[in-house]
């Protein structure tokens, strides 16, 4: 059940409109001029105006790291018969050649589809927060929650490389060492996580309210 609402569904009030500033860490509200939350000590900003700049800065850093992550090898495998170094896509293609289409698909989804989708989703959220969008805010809030949830799971690739490099050290028979792409991929994941965290999701809703008010006038 919802806590008693302040003013009914039709004319819902935001903390900002009520002359208050909300703490995003602990949900407490304070008078608009307050600088730090008296309860949890977090810095208070009614709307993070630099939010979109930070989003784009981390977004670009993430993209810049994502490019070499795809060009350089992620893993270098040496066995008795051969030595091979694989990029992310190259590794998936090789696995597909062996007939394991399912695993190849999982790798492609986790390392290519999800990161690329994340870049596009964050860009869409940032652009629509400024320019407005026909996509309803509820839908955009969902997109944001999915991006925040899924972001950390991309680290799985880096952990797999770490585990394999530690484990597969059988002198000359088989050994695996991490390639440079492991580092840039990890950086790319961290930067996109920071990009998503910098986004002030309240901007989604402000814009929607403003549009609706313009429509009614």
């Amino acid at each position: 059940m919802v806590g008693m609402e302040v003013s009914g569904t039709s004319a819902r009030v935001t903390a900002r409109e009520a002359g208050l500033v909300a703490c995003r860490a602990c949900a407490r509200v304070w008078p608009a001029e307050t600088e730090r939350c008296g309860r949890c000590g977090a810095r208070l900003v009614s709307r993070d105006t630099a939010s979109l700049q930070k989003v784009w800065a981390w977004w670009i850093a993430g993209l810049v790291c994502y490019i070499p992550a795809n060009l350089y090898p992620m893993l270098v495998t040496e066995t008795l018969v051969q030595s091979s170094s694989n990029t992310i896509v190259g590794g998936a293609v090789e696995i597909a050649h062996h007939g394991a289409y399912g695993i190849a698909a999982i790798i492609l989804i986790a390392s290519v589809l999800i990161p690329v989708g994340k870049f596009m989703a964050i860009a869409f959220l940032a652009i629509s927060a400024r320019r407005g969008s026909h996509v309803p805010p509820t839908r955009r809030q969902h997109v944001y929650e999915i991006v925040e949830f899924i972001g950390r799971w991309s680290m799985i690739d880096v952990f797999v490389v770490a585990i394999l490099s530690a484990l597969v050290q059988l002198s000359s028979v088989a050994s695996i060492t991490p390639g440079p792409a492991a580092l840039t991929f990890a950086l790319s994941v961290v930067f996109t996580m920071l990009s998503a965290q910098s986004f002030d999701s309240r901007l989604i809703w402000d814009r929607a309210r403003k549009n609706r008010r313009d429509d009614t006038q």
């Binding site: 059940m1 919802v2 806590g3 008693m4 609402e5 302040v6 819902r12 009030v13 935001t14 903390a15 900002r16 409109e17 009520a18 208050l20 909300a22 703490c23 995003r24 860490a25 949900a27 407490r28 509200v29 304070w30 008078p31 805010p137 809030q141 999701s201 309240r202 989604i204 809703w205 402000d206």
Partner: peptide, 19 residues
């Protein structure tokens, strides 16, 4: 003020009531 709660995601303001 201490009886109010603001949604951290969208800033909607409510009177906090323990469910």
């Amino acid at each position: 003020l201490e009886e109010l709660i603001a949604c951290p995601s969208c800033d909607a303001l409510y009177v906090a009531q323990m469910p």
